[in-house]
Design a protein around this nucleic acid. Structure first.
Lengths: 225, 225
DNA sequence: TAGATTGTTAATCGATTAACAATC
DNA sequence: TAGATTGTTAATCGATTAACAATC
């Protein structure tokens, strides 16, 4: 009775697409649900169910056509749309991301940085860095929907609100503040859709690693298949 | 019948500890399960169940004593142990992490970096950067258990294996390679415990944001409470 | 055809939530 | 005591897995 394409499924669809492109580049034409399952540590049934949810079908014996899958998944996921990203906060981490070369392969384009510090501003760089007050205008003009947030903790909520008012509805959050998109801050400005937030709290992640190691050493942990 | 302290629970325990410390610093002495639930978007029952799993008890009417909780949670989680981390791969991202100041608040100590590029090596810096061949010796001598992996994609699996042989059993993986700890690579060397891996695939995360935004715009997404 | 794989339904599993007796 | 909160058991929920008929 589960008929909804939920977040879990979408994230898996994205992974299928990655694997399929790799398979295609290796010269494959067809793929079976268990191939994809193996590649992503999923059962074949999950793969088939996901495909069936978005109306993708294969051949009862011949598996799935990779080209068709790639095309349909790309369309469902909006892969052909612009994938322009801005970086809010150009400190060490922000700068590393501005220059992160691996993005290119994924068709992700970092188009600009923003910072409150005048010393960081460089509007003529290959990836220009503007003052944060120009962000709203820039985002609207260039139809930017996704941003990386890498400002200091104290500036996090302020920059977050500014991003929402600039129409951003996807944020990769590297600050230590766990951001949540509430109706209050979201419906306030020009923003009329909830904002998807992915929190990457590096300190917390590392802390968790210590805890998991510790618990493992003391026999609490039952593995994390 | 669920009596196991599993990974999900451990990660929540870590969050309780963070909130409790904040509450303590604000002058509170006691806390109720619903307070912690509110702070972490959990139901009070989850909080009570988690505490009961690790043998923590409160007072039937007076809630939980914050000092006791902090002490017991710290002990269960091994908070008092050394939290020394090394950074493997000192490119832009590795360097940003070497200098990441927010770690200090969490008692996380970045003690050294490692790189294969002789130009990056600086053994006299305040946080020294050594050649990666010295990693195994360093990790053993200093009892290092956790590492950040921030090498280029091509070097990822090699560096991963080296880390395992150095006795690392917690890795925060910033490379684009999805690492898995299998028995083959794990039981091979000095490593006799499975390695906890937290993958942070920045490109994939951003891609996912675009997909979630897209699906939302097209009415697929049912929110992600 | 016989064998293999899809697509879907029913069973299982794990985790969350509701409910409530115990009790401070 | 009466009211409030814990600690735990049973019910619910959602997602995964198993199973299998359909069919290429």
């Amino acid at each position: 009775m589960k008929n909804s394409v939920n977040k879990t499924t979408i994230l898996r669809l994205a992974k299928y697409l990655r694997v399929l492109k790799k398979l295609k580049s290796l010269g494959f034409n067809k793929v079976f649900s268990n191939n994809l399952g193996d590649a992503l540590a999923l059962t074949p049934a999950v793969v088939r169910k996901d495909f069936s949810l978005i109306g993708l079908s294969g051949n009862k014996r011949g598996g799935y056509d990779i080209d068709v899958l790639i095309e349909e998944l790309s369309q469902v996921l909006g892969k052909d749309e612009n994938h322009k990203v801005i970086v809010i906060g150009c400190g060490r981490i922000g700068n590393a991301l501005l220059n992160y070369k691996e993005f290119l392969r994924d068709d992700i384009q970092i188009v600009a940085g923003f910072d409150a510090d005048p010393a960081k501003i460089d509007e003529n760089a290959s990836i220009p860095i503007y003052h944060i007050d120009k962000m709203q205008e820039y985002a609207h003009e260039n139809n930017i929907k996704v941003a990386v947030l890498s400002v200091p903790e104290a500036a996090a909520t302020g920059a977050f609100e500014q991003a929402l008012h600039a129409g951003i509805n996807g944020i990769l959050n590297f600050t230590t503040v766990e951001l949540k998109c509430t109706n209050q801050n979201c419906r306030g400005g020009d923003c009329n859709a909830p904002c998807n937030i992915q929190n990457v709290n590096i300190g917390l992640e590392i802390e968790n690693l210590f805890y998991l190691v510790h618990m493992q050493d003391h026999g609490f942990n039952e593995g994390d298949a």
